[in-house]
Structure formats: C-alpha cells, structure tokens
C-alpha cells in the first residue's frame, strides 16, 4: 500500500538518473549549520543542484505563455505563481477561466486537483518537526509544498541537521519560487513578442512537461490508468459541451482507475 516508504521509493530508485550532481552540503556536525541564515542560503543554492529545477523552469515558461495567450495580465499570472504555487492548479485555473468557465467551475476543478497536496504535506512535515516546533513555524513551509519541493525534501533533508531544516526548506522554497517567477515573466514576454512558430513551441511545453512528469510519478496501476483514461475520455466528454467537461472526464476516469485497483487488490486477497 501507499505508506511513506512507498511514496519515496520510486524516486530513490533512479536518483542517479534524475539528478545531475550530489549537493555539496557541509557535514551534519559542521559549525556552518550553527546559523539559520546560512541554512537558508544553503537551501536556496540547492535549487541549482537538480534537474527538476529545469523542468519547473520549462513548465513556468509554458504557464506564462499560456496566460498571455488566454488574455490574462502579467501581474495576475505572477500573483498566481506566488499564491497558488502549484503548476497543475494554475494550468487548470488559466485554461478553465480562459475557455469561459465560471469562477465556481474553476474553483471546483482547482480544489479537486489540489487534494493531492494533502498527503504530501502530511508525509513531509514530520521530517522537519522538533519537539520545540510550533504549528505557526510550519505555515510558510506548508505553503511551499508542491511536488518538486516534496521530492527534494526527501533527498536533501537527511543531509541537514534537524533544527535547521525549516530554515533550509524556506531557502529552497524561496529559490524555487524565484526561478519560477522569472520563468513566468519570460514565458509571458516571449509569447507576446516571438514569431508564432516559437510562441507555439513555448505553449507546447505545458502539455509536454506535465504529461511526462505525471507519467514519471505514476506509482501503481491506478495512476497509469487514470492518466491514460483521463486523456482518452476528455475528447468524448468535451462533445457534450457541459462547461464542466474536465470535472466529468476526470472524476469518471479516476474512479474507473481506482475501481480497477480495488478489484485487483480484492482478487489478490
């Protein structure tokens, strides 16, 4: 089943393929870890140590371009990167609002896509807690949690002394947000100024990067089926023009995928 170990395992298995170089963090007992500010800076510079930053960069180039071509302002899409800080939710928000859905329809689609953040938060926060940690110390860390930070925490936090992990994660989060704000601005500007051919190439980054990173994160049969059925069902459901096509195809495909998983578990038991 899905315990924390199972969550981690797929990433642990192909770490070597996923990450360019190990981060040269100081040893756990180094005096460099005495200062929170230093820990923050180490966190921020760790952003440069992973290929996932490159994937995020490409994703947010695409989000900036998508926002431009869906007629949102630059300030609006930057605000969405800062406040929402979840690529899928931003894509869903921009494409549903941009294709004429109401705010309520968009909010429902966003919130369903965001439920996956819940188990991520639940599984990653225990890595940072000390007996002295108050809940309010964890609010900003919690806001930063999305798939990239979640993966990176499992990789990097064991190399950070426990009492500096919150400061370190703040640095990591601020670094990733900064990279993505730059990418959003660049993508927005490029979509506005590039010839159509290159603007189209930047818009294609979004479906490509999301398809591949979702496929990479597939851990069990229900995930793979959900991805395949979700893509296959949407064109059929969209012919109904309900206004909530995404929700109907998503809930249907996801439930079928879960049903298959449930049935297989039962058959095995």
């Amino acid at each position: 089943m899905l315990d924390a170990g199972c969550f981690r395992q797929p990433y642990a298995l192909d770490d070597s393929n996923l990450h360019r170089s190990p981060v040269a963090l100081p040893p756990l007992d180094s005096p460099q870890w005495k200062s929170s500010l230093r820990a923050f800076a180490w966190g921020m510079s760790s952003v440069a140590s992973t290929v996932l930053t490159l994937v995020l960069f490409a994703t947010y180039l695409g989000i900036g371009a998508l926002a431009h071509d869906s007629h949102f302002s630059l300030g609006w899409v930057l605000g969405s990167t800062l406040l929402v800080w979840a690529g899928p939710a931003q894509i869903i928000l921009i494409s549903t609002l941009g294709s004429g859905a109401t705010a309520v329809q968009a909010a429902i689609a966003v919130t369903v896509s965001a439920i996956r953040l819940f188990p991520m938060v639940v599984s990653v926060l225990p890595l940072m807690k000390t007996p002295q940690t108050k809940r309010r110390h964890l609010v900003l860390v919690t806001h930063f949690i999305a798939v990239t930070l979640w993966v990176e925490c499992y990789r990097l936090l064991p190399k950070v002394p426990r009492e500096r992990r919150i400061a370190f994660t703040h640095g990591l989060g601020c670094g990733l947000v900064t990279v993505c704000m730059v990418a959003t601005t660049l993508g927005y500007g490029l979509a506005a100024n590039l010839p159509p051919l290159f603007a189209a190439a930047i818009l294609l980054l979004t479906p490509l990067a999301f398809l591949l990173s979702t496929a990479r994160n597939c851990r069990q049969i229900s995930d793979i089926l959900a991805l395949v059925l979700g893509i296959a069902l949407f064109p059929l459901v969209s012919m109904l023009h309900t206004g909530v096509d995404i929700l109907i195809s998503g809930v249907t495909a996801g439930t079928i995928a879960y049903g298959v998983h449930w049935w297989r578990e039962r058959a095995r038991a």
Partner: peptide
C-alpha cells in the same frame, strides 16, 4: 490521487485538442 491525475490528464488533452493562441 487517481481523480487528480485524471483531471490533469484532461487538461493536457484540452490544451492539445482546443489549443490556446499561437
């Protein structure tokens, strides 16, 4: 997780099927 994945898959399909702008 399955529903969230399928919703994202639907959005990917939507962008390809009803592409925005350029």
């Amino acid at each position: 997780r399955a529903v969230a994945t399928a919703i994202l898959a639907g959005v990917i399909a939507q962008i390809l099927l009803q592409p925005p702008g350029a």
